[in-house]
Amino acid sequence: MQIKNKYYPYPVIAYGNDSYDGSAFVTDANYAHDAHNIKFQLQASLTDDCLSEMISNGTVKYAHHIECQQTCFRVLVLTDKPIDEFKIHESKVNGLVQICSFLMADRDIQNYSNPSFSRDYKGFKFNIDRGCVLAIGNQVNMIINKEKEELANTSSIFSIRKNMDPVATELQVSTTGAKIVILIPEKTCNQYLNVSTTTLLPVLHAMVIQPALMQVLFELKEAAQKNELYNYDEFRWYRALRRTAEKLEIKFDEEAIASIDVFKTAQKFLDSPIMKAMETICSGDGETDD
């Protein structure tokens, strides 16, 4: 959403607009990663006593329009706080995100007048409909850079391989390389690879990736209880787990790992894959015709 200059049938506080004397509306925005979420930090500074009072009584709100064209995500955040936060899951946005901020009427306003009107509008009163813009702030364009090595992108630390042993019937997990290797019997692995390109991928994560990660966490737990975690420092997958744990505010030192809740922690690392799998199944994705 690009802010464009336009004419309004009533006074509006905006850059280059002389409808008001001495009034100003300046906004800014930033973002930070918060576990698997993006947390937008929204700021607004208003210099106008009349409109400030209308914000206090709920007639007017700060409005922040957040839009990502690549993902078609858009939302309007209404708040009465000059500094506020808005959090969304990181999957909602990717690349360029535009944030446009306004003052917006949250109720119909009859006979609106303001002592700060410029000379051209002195003595005039205006009927303002709910949703109308009363001030225009700045537009902020930001590029959301996601972590390249996130556990949601399973290829970063997991490698799915065929187990060529003809009598193998179970999944096996190896932690002796740069990645966690999941060995799957040949026929099942072919089925996995075929389904992994469909909308059923969240179901596969719950069926295959989460159990494999639980096995890895069990292995780390046993090592921690023996004071042998140092044996894993050389592995890239282990360092990735530590970085992810830090972002998720999960304690991941030797003492914490020695008593870790494997099931709960695996879900946190993978952002609740069972919930996502159930949502995928219940949404009808992957259904077959009778």
Rank of each mutant, 00 (worst) to 15 (best):
A14I: 00
L134G: 07
E234L: 05
L220W: 01
N194T: 15
L103A: 05
G177K: 01
V167M: 13
F235K: 00
Q215D: 02
S101P: 06
G123E: 08
G58L: 07
M142H: 03
G22P: 10
G284D: 14
S174P: 00
T197Y: 15
S19Y: 02
T244M: 10
Y10E: 09
I128T: 03
S283V: 10
T154I: 13
L103N: 01
L46S: 05
L200R: 06
T198H: 03
N111W: 11
A63L: 09
Q110D: 15
E279N: 08
V75S: 13
T199F: 10
T244C: 11
T59P: 02
N141T: 08
A135L: 05
S283T: 06
I3H: 06
N163Y: 01
A135V: 06
H33R: 15
H65K: 15
M207I: 12
F73M: 07
F86W: 15
Q2V: 14
K122F: 08
N37D: 06
I99F: 10
V208D: 07
V203K: 09
L204V: 10
L103I: 05
F269D: 03
Q267W: 01
V262K: 07
A168G: 04
A266M: 01
E85V: 14
Y20M: 02
G286K: 05
M142E: 11
N17S: 15
N37A: 04
K4F: 12
I182S: 03
E90H: 09
Q191W: 04
S101M: 10
Y238C: 04
V195D: 01
I3G: 03
F40K: 04
P82W: 02
A224C: 01
D129I: 08
D253P: 02
V12T: 13
D289R: 05
D84Y: 13
I184C: 08
S45P: 00
D253R: 03
D120F: 09
Y192K: 00
L248V: 04
L42W: 14
I274V: 14
E67T: 14
I66F: 11
C72V: 06
K87R: 11
I144G: 06
R119A: 12
H205G: 09
C132V: 07
E147N: 04
T199G: 11
E255L: 14
A135F: 03
R161V: 08
P185K: 08
E246N: 10
E170N: 05
K6T: 13
K187A: 04
R239I: 00
P185L: 14
L183I: 00
V208S: 13
N145H: 15
N30D: 15
K221V: 02
E249N: 13
R107W: 04
M1F: 09
A32G: 09
E287S: 14
